[in-house]
Nucleic acid binder design. Structure first.
Lengths: 374, 374
DNA sequence: CTGCTGTTCTTGATCGATCCAGAAACCGCA
DNA sequence: TGCGGTTTCTGGATCGATCAAGAACAGCAG
């Protein structure tokens, strides 16, 4: 009788139990099976398919497993055989601490987590997809599907993901043909925001934009930067703004645009100072996110430009902070949490690869930060 | 020459590209090797050990891989063989949306993420470890190590983790022998907080506590609930409070304790109403977290009990919100982000299983919410 | 007793890679 | 030419499970 794990074909010689630094040799199904005098499959079934063996034998197996300190089938081996990983991957452009600080991203994660919770799946976060070096690691993990959030068109990590066979759902951007993408109607939302301001009588505008290119630039965006954007969301929102401005007979291309590298109050403040510092400052600023808009309001208050009396501000997102700010922010509401949830469901429900996406509606929410110009 | 994947033992015939719903048959190293007329190992080396083959052949292999749509070695198979997963697991007691809303937890996650970023590892979050059913799924994923955060002693999920061979580091609790645990000096911190109030001259106290038992109870905690606590952190902090009170000659066991099921402003408010509603209300309240303390301050303001004039409040954690509140909160600072970072480092650096833990210092931060009683 | 159905358990193949020992090719140099 | 020493490449074993097909045995009708 051998009671040792793998008495017949011992592991590599140097992994004897006498080296305390090495993890103790892992017990396998087979070792347990041998001790019990049953087959591997029987032990496997005891854990994974209770209907395949008698209740009594199953109890005996589980009991022996507990005694022997066998915690259950090795998840990696199971994955290899079954092809299921029990987790979905979330690929984020920025490092994780940044993502957690950003209310937009963390609300989105909540939505994804809702879906994971329903299905009892883990969520594997792979942040930092934008860092230049080492694109190798992204996508090199065991998951049943990837959600890629808000990557620039040029991101190498996304190419890697799409080249593989694991299903991928993209949220927001890039919008690629033949890739399932969950989006909102950015263009319509932006257009409604601009129309609202035009309707109030504004004629002099400024735009505080999300990045056009993934190069970390902050400052005035000239035609070249805007011409071939790396971020589709930015492009769509700009198109929406311009559409409304042109409807009103304005020269949309002449409206100054300040680009911010991130959606962040500090950068919004700087951008607003730039726009408000000119000789003919705008009476209305369109900001592509709420955080940027809140920065704009902060800058206006510092410069003693009353909002909305002398300056109207409209954001995008409708974060919780938008309704708490003073004045409360007029903005375009998007269903962030639902967006995450929908993406996860799309990923999990579609059996094979799909290109069918989902476009969620947005809604203009008028609050106190916008009014007719004096 | 055969150019088909696995020409010798073909996959299911119908899974050629003509059925768009099926995942296309995954190419293996071997298929690629056959096409190129080299061996599996050579192709493997081209991806994973560039020094093992000539640069020219490597280029040819990678080129052919790109052409064929081969995205690189299957991560699961690699894991099985190498035993490395490229990710660490974080086991949280609550569902993920809840964890993201909680500043304590999310700061901790940031710290863990810092370490993951350094090592280029993914972070696999397994939330909801406390839910009763289905303990099976926790720990049934491929990771190189687990961090378990703030679980009650009775949590079945933790037993499962410890039974396995994957290394585990526990943060905060439970404090078990032979398990590596990263803690703070909860008892000393609590003692300092209580000493501070005693030193100011307070004699009538109330305690707003974190849970003693994992049963969702809110309300006054009698001796029975306190006697055999399921949460070590709560027990330690209470011991610290009591130590300082007894030093001052007070009957610590007589100080009323209100237990809250979560660290949450709303529950802190309710708890404070309970404590302040009595005939001889306390002049000082010790709260085991900042969120609870902020709730206490909110309740005091609603009840027109001025803080700190008529009521002193001391929290625990030193969240950002503590210094922004009115009045700014006196509290015990703990290095949350460092705690997460340290746990991850401990997990990654220790080659085998360790029981060595780490105890991080805390520091009393006196602000405006505490003063001498009238 | 034979034949049939159904339960219970076992064997051999397989998932897709990496590792190891060794073969083949190539090198310089006596 | 012969020989040790590199460099480059190969095939078989292995990681630890699941799955499909089949064996052993039971109960039951004819």
């Amino acid at each position: 009788m051998d009671d040792q794990p793998r008495a017949d074909r011992p592991r590599d010689d140097h992994s004897r139990a006498d080296d305390p630094r090495r993890p103790r040799p892992r017990l396998r199904l087979e070792d347990l099976a041998r001790r019990l005098g049953v087959s591997r499959t029987t032990v496997s079934n005891a854990f994974s398919r209770p209907d395949q063996l008698s209740a009594e034998l199953r109890a005996r197996v589980l009991d022996a497993a507990r005694q022997a300190g066998y915690a259950g089938p090795n998840p990696v081996a199971r994955m290899l055989r079954t092809g299921r990983a029990g987790a979905i991957g979330l690929v984020l452009p920025e490092p994780l601490p940044f993502a957690l600080d950003d209310p937009t991203t963390s609300e989105l994660i909540r939505g994804i987590a809702d879906a994971c919770e329903e299905r009892r799946l883990g969520l594997l976060i792979e942040p930092g997809a934008l860092r230049a070096a080492d694109p190798r690691v992204i996508g090199d993990v065991a998951v049943d599907g990837f959600i890629a959030y808000s990557l620039p068109r040029s991101a190498a990590a996304l190419q890697r993901l799409l080249a593989g066979t694991t299903p991928v759902v993209v949220i927001d951007e890039p919008r690629l043909p033949d890739v399932a993408t969950v989006t909102i109607d950015d263009r319509a939302g932006a257009r409604d925001a601009a129309r609202h301001l035009v309707g109030l009588g504004h004629r002099r505008f400024g735009i505080v934009a999300l990045p056009f290119q993934a190069d970390g630039y902050d400052g005035l965006a000239d035609a070249a930067r805007v011409a071939d954007p790396d971020y589709d969301v930015t492009a769509q929102r700009l198109a929406g703004y311009r559409e409304a401005l042109e409807e009103a007979g304005l020269d949309a291309a002449a409206v100054p645009i300040v680009e911010c590298a991130h959606s962040d109050e500090g950068l919004g403040r700087e951008a607003a100072r730039l726009l408000l510092g000119g000789t003919e400052p705008p009476t209305a600023i369109l900001a592509m996110s709420d955080r940027l808009a809140l920065g704009v309001i902060a800058a206006a208050q510092e410069l003693r430009v009353p909002v909305p009396a002398s300056l109207s501000v409209v954001g995008f997102d409708d974060l919780a902070a938008a309704s708490h700010s003073r004045p409360a922010l007029t903005t375009v509401r998007q269903p962030l949490r639902l967006k995450g949830y929908a993406a996860a469901r799309l990923l999990l429900e579609t059996p094979g690869p799909t290109a069918d996406g989902l476009d969620l509606p947005v809604e203009l929410v008028v609050r106190r930060s916008s009014a007719a110009p004096r």
